[in-house]
Amino acid sequence: MRNKAINKLAQEALTPDDVLQDLLQGNERFVNNKLAEVAHLELVKETITGQYPKAVILSCIDSRVPVEQVFDQAIGDIFVARVAGNFENTDILGSIEYACAVAGSKLIFVLGHESCGAVKAACDGVELGNITSMLANIIPAVKKSSTEVEGEANSSNKEFVAKTVENNVLLTMQRIQERSNLLSEMIDGDEVKIVGGVYSLSSGKVNLV
């Protein structure tokens, strides 16, 4: 049973590739229904004085994608930023910068998911309250997919939606580096790695893109 939280020395010893491998191995445990046994209350007590997460994950708000469980991570292991459609904005960028430059995280993981409702809405040009301006962040991925996938450019085309989910992850990764000089320098210096993946609702597996 795990009853120790990650500490500063352990965090500093990790490389970005170590962290990525750890997350992917955690996802394998999740897929195989072999999650690690954790003494959660012990970790609550241990982390009261500080936190040293190894990664920051930007994901969608979808209730079917419980990020910590998907990667079999415990209290104190990862930062999680969530917004419908897993895109970056100023607040998300600031949060990721804090995670990496201040708190020492080694990996940025942009996580999309199969059959994303926000992506479908963007594909269909939905307009509703503040959802309209939110979906504007996903439109670049919609436009990119329209040049790559044949058939209807809307949510009725499963291939189009899947490609847009993937493109949205890739474009978000690109914009994070373009919009944050701080993160870009850390990535260029191999202090931090940025990766993207898509979670399968049907299998629970995360596939890198």
Rank of each mutant, 00 (worst) to 15 (best):
A141Y: 03
K163E: 14
F87Q: 10
S105E: 11
D62T: 03
K45D: 12
V44H: 11
L107P: 09
C123F: 05
V169I: 13
S63A: 15
S156V: 08
S145A: 15
K45S: 08
L171Y: 02
S155C: 08
L111V: 01
V161W: 08
C100D: 11
S133D: 13
H113C: 02
A55L: 10
Y52H: 15
D77L: 09
N130H: 13
A122M: 11
V102K: 07
A122I: 13
C123K: 02
C123Q: 04
V56D: 06
T132S: 15
S95G: 04
T49S: 15
T132E: 09
C60Y: 06
F160K: 01
F87P: 02
A55C: 05
S155A: 12
E178K: 15
L111F: 09
K144S: 09
Q51L: 05
L43C: 11
V67W: 03
I75T: 13
G117C: 03
E68P: 01
K143N: 14
C116M: 10
T164R: 04
Q69D: 11
T172M: 05
S59R: 00
P140V: 08
P66W: 04
V119Y: 05
R82N: 13
K54Y: 12
N168E: 00
N137E: 07
N168V: 03
K143W: 04
N157K: 10
F160M: 06
C123A: 14
K54C: 06
G112T: 07
I92Q: 07
D124N: 15
A141S: 11
S63W: 03
I75E: 02
T147I: 01
L135A: 08
A103I: 01
N130G: 11
N167Q: 11
Q177W: 00
E114T: 09
V169Q: 02
F79G: 05
P53E: 10
A99N: 07
G76W: 13
D77A: 14
A99G: 11
S146K: 00
D62V: 01
L135D: 09
F79M: 07
S63M: 02
T49N: 15
K163M: 12
Y52T: 07
A162Q: 12
C60S: 09
D72P: 13
I131Q: 11
L111N: 06
V56L: 07
C116K: 08
L171S: 01
D72S: 11
F109A: 05
Q73V: 06
K120V: 03
L171K: 02
L111I: 04
L43V: 05
T147R: 03
G112V: 03
C60I: 06
A136M: 13
I57L: 13
G129C: 04
E114I: 01
L170R: 02
Q177F: 03
C123S: 12
S59M: 09
I57E: 07
A122F: 05
S63R: 00
I92A: 04
G85S: 10
S156W: 00
P66I: 07
L107S: 01
S105M: 02
R175N: 14
V83R: 04
A136K: 15
E152N: 13
D77I: 06
T49D: 14
I48S: 12
A55Y: 06
L43K: 15
N154L: 00
A99C: 05
M134G: 07
I139F: 00
T90S: 14
I176W: 03
V56G: 09
K120W: 01
